[in-house]
Nucleic acid binder design. Structure first.
Lengths: 234, 234
DNA sequence: CGCTGCTTTGATTCGTATCAATAGCAGTGG
DNA sequence: CCACTGCTATTGATACGAATCAAAGCAGCG
């Protein structure tokens, strides 16, 4: 009876491809950690010696340049894979946004294991392709979108994820933000002041309500979509 | 004797992992095309039915939003893989920047083949991980860098790739730009006018020379690096 | 020569960053 | 319960950088 059996991320992580026996082998290589909110799992520029799965919590990938400007490159959720297998150094930090549980492996050992388990590599490939798609979407936002479009777009993305599937289309969606304004700014490539102003603006035009700093209610989704200027295939 | 044997990209593409026999099987699925400069291989929003390798030439991945703003998401060179295996629709266009040769496969057929050839999937995984790294680097540029930093950074990247390995460190590097100003602007998330002004500025401060529109000489690499504000691990 | 397309330069506008002050809120201890 | 502290968010004034609008320069080519 190993730790994987009761792992919360089991069904979503790349491990889903393994038989109980194989899982047992992999498990022997791994270690589970708990990380406090704000703690850095891996520093930008350091050699990437660990890879692994997120079991619980939310982390971010980020880079800071010499001027201190910080940019979030992606968010990592339970079931997602972190780290860089197959021998490159990582050029970004991995930081926990909330308290998080991760399951890590020494990179070299994981590489060997993956090489001899094609099903695992296949899952990892699918996941990486998905990561790439999402990263590219994000990229468009950073390259060409205005502050309003960025904030509206992010709220829509969260709202879509948060909406109960049985919800009627026009109904107000309510959700808690996963992080504070500074984090949002780093994600969107803006400053905290600009993010704050956009929130106020979206409230004033009746797209959203902000009952408290961490909660948002999408009152008029159509207006919000207009602001986001999303590409809708016809 | 199949077409792969004399393929220029053979050594660099994911096919390098296959035995002659396997290569033959894969070859039977594929078709070679020549694409004119400016032609679109795949439209943003359309179902992605083709995947393949670039044999020759340069292509770009790009998105356009409803307002007509265009953003380049990445460049594709010989040996690179294009398209989205394993069933997702592509949300970007693939456009040839120069005349190009590609070797394409119907997506479904390629998926099947890959599933039964772990070595191929391994190569594809490595390549995708590399793509992801490069995309994330790009992302930082779009999120937080000034116009000068973007242009200087791009020139440095090209210069580094173009420099002969035996070149002495301080010597001027000379290269041709792979595309015109508008393309550069789309890559950097700027307008053509801004790109042009930055070229002029870099010339005035003595970082580069511009003997003609398509050629650049890096006169003072140190100055250029200052402008790019790159993160140099100490 | 006069076209056409691409690039550079100039004048102006607009949007976001920056700087600075204030406001809201949670926790602490009197 | 209230003052005090520290932190995060909002709001305001201003500066700066890039977009936009407009015009002129330059090359290739019929």
């Amino acid at each position: 009876m190993n730790a994987c059996a009761q792992c919360a991320a089991r069904a979503r992580a790349i491990c889903q491809s393994l038989s109980p026996l194989e899982l047992d082998d992999l498990n022997r290589l791994g270690r589970r950690h708990t990380i406090r909110a704000g703690q850095t799992l891996q520093w930008q520029g350091a050699d990437s010696m660990l890879v692994g799965n997120v079991i619980e919590g939310v982390l971010k990938l980020s880079v800071a340049d010499p001027g201190g400007r910080e940019q979030t490159l992606g968010m990592v959720f339970p079931g997602d894979f972190i780290g860089r297998p197959f021998g490159a150094r990582s050029d970004h930090s991995i930081v926990a946004l909330s308290e998080a549980k991760v399951c890590t492996f020494p990179r070299a050992a994981f590489d060997d294991f993956a090489l001899s388990h094609p099903k695992l590599e296949h899952q990892l490939l699918r996941r990486t392709l998905g990561d790439l798609d999402r990263t590219r979407q994000w990229m468009q936002l950073l390259g060409r979108k205005s502050a309003t479009e960025r904030v509206a777009g992010l709220l829509l993305a969260i709202a879509t994820r948060a909406a109960a599937p049985d919800e009627e289309a026009g109904a107000p969606v309510r959700f808690r933000l996963p992080c504070g304004r500074q984090e949002l700014a780093d994600i969107l490539g803006l400053t905290i002041e600009t993010v704050s102003r956009q929130f106020t603006k979206l409230r004033e035009i009746g797209a959203i309500e902000i009952p408290d700093r961490r909660t948002v209610v999408v009152v008029d989704r159509a207006v919000l979509e207009d602001c986001a200027a999303v590409f809708e295939p016809s």
